[in-house]
Simulated scan of single mutants.
Amino acid sequence: MSSGRTQYESDSDTVLSALGNKYSAEILCAAGTPKSAQALSEDIEIPIATCYRRIEELVDAGLLTCEGRELSEKGRRTNIYRRTVDELEVDFSEAEPEFSRKRRTEAKNQLQDQLEE
Rank of each mutant, 00 (worst) to 15 (best):
Q38W: 03
F92N: 06
E98D: 09
E98Q: 11
D11T: 06
Q110L: 12
E57N: 09
E106Y: 08
Q112G: 00
E42R: 14
D86R: 12
R103H: 09
D91P: 01
N109R: 15
E87G: 14
K22T: 14
A61T: 04
R82S: 11
E67T: 11
T14V: 10
E94P: 09
S72W: 01
S17K: 15
I46G: 04
S17Q: 14
R104A: 07
N79K: 07
C29T: 15
E70G: 14
E106R: 11
P47F: 12
L28I: 08
E42H: 12
L64D: 09
V15Y: 00
R101G: 00
G62A: 12
R83I: 14
D91S: 03
C29N: 15
K74Q: 13
R69S: 08
E70A: 15
Q114I: 07
D91L: 02
E57D: 11
T33M: 03
N21W: 09
N79T: 01
L64T: 07
R82W: 08
N109D: 14
E89W: 11
R69W: 04
S3Q: 05
L58D: 04
G32Y: 05
L16R: 12
C66R: 08
K74S: 14
S72K: 02
F92G: 04
E57M: 09
S41I: 03
E98N: 09
S41P: 05
E42D: 13
G20M: 05
G20C: 08
T105H: 03
E73R: 14
K102I: 01
E87V: 15
E94V: 10
K22N: 13
Q38M: 09
R76T: 07
T33L: 07
D13T: 12
A31G: 04
T65E: 15
K35G: 00
E89D: 14
S41H: 04
T50A: 14
E89L: 13
L40G: 00
E87S: 14
A49E: 14
D13Q: 12
K102Y: 00
T78L: 11
T14P: 05
Q110A: 11
G62C: 10
K35Y: 01
C51S: 12
R69E: 11
Q112P: 00
G68W: 09
S36I: 01
L40D: 00
F99N: 01
Y81S: 07
E106A: 13
A61R: 03
Y81N: 08
K102F: 00
N79S: 10
A25K: 10
E67G: 02
I55T: 01
A107P: 00
